[in-house]
């Protein structure tokens, strides 16, 4: 009876894992098939690494990897820098200013991207940052501000402020109390958000599509460009997608521990 229950448990877990991993495995299998084989991935045993070689010899794709990595990293660092202070403010202070800021964040979180991204194209053009690093970085940070401030507030709510009170009484400035006392206590949460922020930015598509052109290719846009009127170049798209998955996979593999430890709202 115990053996049966155990078998059922293992079976269910294996089934769920299979369903979750299947699209990724299928993508991997497609990336290993030659161009002629992608329509019948399930038939034939011809496998090749040629797609990866072809993708890695494409300068634009390599450039896109570099750009995406730089933009994701910078966006993570800068987003966390601006949201950690904003979340701290929301958590530690009451009153009209705090309520107004929370209201602003909530309202702007609800605005659909669609009503935002086309005017953003005009704005970045007018300010001369279209198709450049800042032109993609700053809107990404703006996307993160609302959500991350909300989460950061939750994290700071979970940290007892009496240590900061003590620091203030000992003659620490408010800024000093924040940097020396509250910030170190929030490091696990910040690490968790950093992992998520990096993954979000790495995988983001709509903003990158509208705000970048020839000069600043990023990885999601380059992948989507394999889908065109002539059909989809499955072999190259899936090879690029698998390559794009590698850093995200490594980050998740080593970061999940910190995410689970840190994400306690």
């Amino acid at each position: 009876m115990r053996l049966l229950r155990r078998a059922v448990f293992v079976g269910i877990v294996a089934l769920v894992c299979g369903l979750f991993a299947f699209p990724v495995l299928w993508l991997g299998l497609t990336s290993l098939r030659p161009q002629s084989g992608v329509y019948y991935v399930h038939r034939g045993t011809e496998l090749t690494l040629g797609n990866f070689v072809q993708v890695l010899h494409n300068e634009r794709i390599v450039q896109a990897f570099v750009n995406s990595a730089l933009i994701s990293t910078l966006a993570t660092v800068l987003s966390l820098m601006v949201t950690v202070t904003s979340g701290y403010m929301l958590s530690r202070f009451r009153g009209a200013l705090s309520r107004a800021w929370f209201g602003t964040i909530y309202v702007f979180r609800c605005v659909p991207y669609i009503s935002w991204v086309l005017p953003l194209y005009f704005v970045t053009q007018a300010w001369g940052v279209y198709d450049s690093y800042p032109g993609l970085l700053l809107p990404h940070i703006a996307v993160h501000i609302c959500f991350f401030s909300w989460l950061m507030k939750g994290f700071f709510d979970g940290i007892d402020p009496s240590m900061e009170h003590a620091a203030l009484l000992d003659g620490c400035t408010r800024w000093g109390a924040f940097v020396r006392v509250a910030l170190p206590a929030a490091v696990p949460a910040i690490a968790a958000l950093a992992v998520l922020c990096w993954l979000f930015t790495w995988n983001e598509f709509l903003f990158a599509l509208i705000l970048t052109g020839q000069r600043t290719p990023v990885i999601t846009v380059v992948m989507a460009q394999f889908v065109h009127e002539m059909g989809i170049e499955w072999h190259l798209m899936s090879a690029t997608a698998i390559l794009a998955l590698v850093p995200a996979f490594l980050l998740t593999l080593f970061g999940q521990k910190y995410v689970i430890r840190g994400l306690r709202i």
Binding site: F20, V24, L199, T220, M223, A241, A248, T252
Partner: peptide, 10 residues
């Protein structure tokens, strides 16, 4: 956690 790593558009 695999779906977290894949770009939604892909």
């Amino acid at each position: 956690l695999m779906p977290l790593m894949v770009a939604p558009v892909i």
